[in-house]
């Protein structure tokens, strides 16, 4: 064993096994387990609830497609000076906004698991704005478009996670 290994082993034996988090995590945990208990006690009702949620989601998607189908030509006409690439970004943003609004509406009566999720959502919004600003100069940049798409996906995932977490299996 080298000197360094000896030294490292000493440091490892001196490292603390415990570390306390800076914020109180119990509140979120309590909310999480309460929501699990609620889910368990509503087993019978859950299948119909899930089904109705799925139907709502399908209906919302169909409405969105119809709206985009009719709105897209007007949007393109109104912004003739813009390139086709940026019109696509506008359409993506509009679709995202509608999806976020419909998700938020569907979770209106559900308590969120964390307090700062709106702040996180705002940070993702800011990130999307920065990417969109870059896309104005370079609307066909596929890396930026992908990045914007990922940010939008993160927003949806965040809203779903804090309102209806899907617990992992151990």
């Amino acid at each position: 064993m080298s000197n360094f290994d000896d030294k490292l082993a000493q440091h490892i034996s001196g490292i603390s096994k415990e570390k306390q988090p800076e914020r109180d995590l119990w509140r979120g945990i309590e909310l999480g387990i309460t929501s699990q208990q609620g889910d368990a006690s509503q087993d019978d009702a859950s299948s119909s609830t899930v089904t109705s949620k799925q139907w709502m989601a399908i209906a919302a998607s169909v409405c969105l497609v119809i709206v985009l189908w009719f709105a897209a030509p007007f949007a393109f006409k109104a912004e003739e000076s813009r390139s086709d690439g940026y019109a696509l970004i506008d359409a993506m943003s509009m679709q995202q906004q509608q999806q976020v609004n419909s998700l938020l509406a569907s979770y209106e009566s559900t308590t969120a698991l964390t307090e700062d999720w709106q702040e996180q959502l705002k940070e993702l919004d800011d990130a999307a704005d920065v990417i969109k600003a870059a896309l104005k100069d370079d609307p066909d940049n596929s890396a930026l478009i992908k990045m914007l798409h990922h940010v939008y996906q993160q927003q949806i995932a965040l809203i779903e996670r804090v309102h209806a977490p899907k617990w992992q299996q151990i």
Binding site: P21, R23, L25, G28, I29, G32, Q36, P165, W167
Partner: peptide, 19 residues
Amino acid sequence: EKGMAEDASQEVFIQLWKK
């Protein structure tokens, strides 16, 4: 990361309750 560690710790205990 502190934030991620806090979220992961919460997830650990929430799943622990279930399992």
